[in-house]
């Protein structure tokens, strides 16, 4: 990306124009977004991929959701059929919570009837492998994920960055297990409220958010004790979350860190997806599809999260 910046800045003469891209219409694929977490019930949302250059308006997004599938979930001993749950049955507070949890726009949830699949009788347990089978359009798609042993953070704290007076990052110290191939994902949520401005009294983050490179593995650090740090996920664009405070935590914030151990399939998906998000459009990036852990050509991810929680109060 730097090269690109450089090439275009060196020759300030480069020019751009919008072009029409004429590609054959792609095949529609099933997209899976499913999560199971220790102590929580599993949910799955299904949608379809759409042609890249088609404009995305609210109705096309709504139409991309799939609600005519059958899903079974198995923990190795018990197999259940998941229950379809649609937004029309939720009140607006529940809809808002769902919107923030799965990233579906609120206006979409309130206007259209969007359905997901849950199994309220099953809670994620560490050590178990969960398999989902999706039947849709006479095809069967299978995915499996494991709730691996959680690895705790030894400690976690806030530190002011450089000569800033109140802005800083979160840091943590951990000890990676001796065994190889451990994978981690970092989530964080500010649970304190805005103390001024138009959002006064509102909790800063309603859900756990991930920074732009939220996963790492123990390739460089296997079996060692080490420190690492993260900035604030920039998903929020609320008034004082933008520049110059963008990416920073602030003295006075209370942050819950959800540090999850994940399996390799989840790691591969998230790390490639995050890379793709960062490099979309760069001519120097190799076009790579995100590797799904669902069979039969489906896209998306069936993710198992095995979390460890920590609460950090940000002070100088």
């Amino acid at each position: 990306m730097l090269f690109l910046l450089f090439v275009s800045s060196l020759f300030l003469v480069s020019c751009e124009k919008e072009i029409d891209v004429d590609l054959p219409r792609p095949e529609e694929k099933l997209v899976v977004e499913g999560v199971i977490e220790t102590g929580a019930f599993p949910y799955v949302i299904l949608s379809k991929s759409t042609p890249y250059f088609d404009p995305t308006d609210i109705s096309s997004v709504a139409n991309s959701y799939v609600s005519d599938a059958t899903i079974t979930i198995s923990d190795g001993t018990i197999t259940n059929q998941m229950t379809k749950l649609c937004t029309s049955t939720l009140n607006s507070a529940q809809q808002r919570q769902l919107s923030e949890l799965v990233g579906i726009p609120m206006n979409l949830l309130s206007t259209y009837d969007i359905c997901g699949y849950v199994d309220l009788s099953m809670l994620g347990e560490v050590g178990k492998t969960y398999e989902i089978k999706i039947s849709w359009n006479n095809e069967e798609y299978v995915g499996s994920t494991q709730l691996v042993n959680p690895v705790p953070l030894d400690s976690a704290w806030f530190e002011v960055f450089g000569d800033r007076d109140s802005l800083g990052f979160l840091y943590a110290e951990m000890t990676d297990p001796v065994s190889k191939n451990n994978y981690y994902r970092w989530f964080a949520q500010r649970i304190n409220s805005y103390t001024y401005g138009s959002l006064i009294g509102q909790q800063k983050d309603n859900n756990f958010l991930t920074p732009s490179s939220s996963v790492f593995d123990d390739e460089f650090v296997n079996g060692t004790n080490f420190e690492f740090g993260y900035g604030r996920p920039v998903a929020s664009d609320k008034f004082d979350d933008q520049a110059p405070e963008r990416g920073f935590y602030k003295v006075g914030d209370t942050v819950v860190v959800k540090f999850c151990s994940i399996d390799q399939g989840v790691f591969s998906f998230i790390s490639v997806a995050e890379e793709q998000i960062l490099s979309t459009g760069s001519p120097f990036a190799t076009p790579v599809n995100v590797p799904s852990n669902i069979s039969n050509g489906a896209l998306g991810l069936w993710a198992g999260y095995s979390p460890h929680f920590d609460t950090i109060i940000c002070k100088k």
Binding site: S49, Y52, I277
Partner: peptide
């Protein structure tokens, strides 16, 4: 060159699925 063929959303983020390798010709 290789261009994106389809798009999809996971965790609210836009992801792309590419068309066949080098299936598009630039001008």
């Amino acid at each position: 060159i290789t261009l994106p063929a389809s798009k999809y959303f996971v965790e609210g983020e836009l992801l792309v699925e590419y068309a066949d390798r080098n299936s598009y010709r630039m001008a």
